Computed example of a mutant assay.
Amino acid sequence: MTVPMNVLSATKDYSIHLHQYHMADQGRIRYRKVCELGNREVPQEELGKGYELTRTQVIPSPTRT
C-alpha cells in the first residue's frame, strides 16, 4: 500500500524586522561611520581597530593576513 505525502520545509522566517525612524519626520536612521576629527563618512576599507592608550594616542592592532 502506498500513501501519498507532502513534505514541507520548516525553515520559513516568521520574525518581524524593524527599522529605526526619526519620529518627528519619519526619516530612516542608519549607522554611518563618521570620523570625529575630519567630520566625514569613512568607507569600510579605511576602518581599523586599535587600543586607546591615551586620549591622543592609539596603538593599532595587527592586521590579519
Results as ranks from 00 to 15, higher is better:
residue 53 L to T: 10
residue 65 T to D: 09
residue 23 M to R: 08
residue 30 R to P: 00
residue 56 T to R: 07
residue 26 Q to H: 10
residue 11 T to N: 07
residue 20 Q to M: 12
residue 62 P to C: 03
residue 12 K to E: 13
residue 28 R to D: 02
residue 47 L to D: 08
residue 52 E to M: 08
residue 24 A to T: 13
residue 23 M to T: 10
residue 64 R to N: 11
residue 23 M to W: 01
residue 28 R to M: 07
residue 42 V to L: 04
residue 34 V to G: 01
residue 9 S to I: 01
residue 37 L to Y: 05
residue 57 Q to L: 15
residue 22 H to I: 12
residue 3 V to A: 08
residue 64 R to C: 07
residue 50 G to Q: 10
residue 4 P to Y: 02
residue 30 R to V: 13
residue 62 P to K: 10
residue 43 P to M: 06
residue 50 G to F: 08
residue 7 V to D: 00
residue 32 R to Y: 02
residue 54 T to A: 10
residue 44 Q to H: 11
residue 2 T to E: 03
residue 65 T to P: 00
residue 1 M to L: 06
residue 19 H to S: 11
residue 4 P to R: 10
residue 52 E to L: 07
residue 45 E to Y: 12
residue 55 R to N: 14
residue 45 E to V: 11
residue 21 Y to M: 15
residue 40 R to K: 15
residue 54 T to S: 15
residue 52 E to F: 01
residue 1 M to K: 03
residue 14 Y to P: 00
residue 13 D to L: 08
residue 6 N to R: 15
residue 37 L to P: 00
residue 56 T to E: 12
residue 41 E to D: 05
residue 1 M to S: 08
residue 52 E to G: 01
residue 9 S to M: 03
residue 58 V to A: 04
residue 45 E to L: 10
residue 29 I to W: 06
residue 58 V to P: 00
residue 2 T to K: 04
residue 58 V to D: 03
residue 52 E to A: 12
residue 38 G to F: 07
residue 58 V to K: 07
residue 39 N to R: 07
residue 23 M to L: 10
residue 54 T to W: 07
residue 37 L to I: 09
residue 31 Y to C: 03
residue 47 L to A: 11
residue 21 Y to F: 15
residue 5 M to L: 14
residue 63 T to Q: 13
residue 65 T to H: 06
residue 65 T to M: 07
residue 62 P to A: 12
residue 27 G to W: 00
residue 2 T to Q: 01
residue 44 Q to P: 01
residue 37 L to D: 04
residue 51 Y to E: 06
residue 43 P to T: 06
residue 52 E to N: 01
residue 39 N to K: 12
residue 19 H to Y: 04
residue 46 E to C: 14
residue 7 V to C: 02
residue 6 N to L: 15
residue 60 P to D: 02
residue 6 N to F: 13
residue 40 R to Y: 11
residue 31 Y to V: 03
residue 9 S to K: 03
residue 44 Q to R: 13
residue 26 Q to G: 05
residue 62 P to S: 10
residue 27 G to N: 09
residue 43 P to N: 05
residue 47 L to T: 14
residue 20 Q to W: 05
residue 18 L to I: 03
residue 21 Y to I: 15
residue 22 H to K: 13
residue 43 P to A: 05
residue 39 N to I: 00
residue 40 R to T: 14
residue 10 A to Q: 15
residue 22 H to N: 14
residue 39 N to L: 13
residue 49 K to W: 03
residue 14 Y to N: 07
residue 3 V to D: 07
residue 18 L to D: 02
residue 40 R to D: 06
residue 51 Y to R: 06
residue 9 S to D: 06
residue 65 T to R: 08
residue 12 K to L: 15
residue 11 T to R: 04
residue 19 H to I: 08
residue 48 G to S: 13
residue 54 T to R: 07
residue 49 K to P: 00
residue 29 I to N: 05
residue 20 Q to T: 08
residue 28 R to E: 08
residue 33 K to G: 00
residue 57 Q to P: 00
residue 13 D to P: 01
residue 23 M to N: 05
residue 35 C to S: 14
residue 1 M to H: 03
residue 20 Q to F: 11
residue 21 Y to D: 11
residue 31 Y to H: 06
residue 5 M to H: 06
residue 16 I to M: 12
residue 15 S to H: 09
residue 14 Y to S: 04
residue 17 H to A: 09
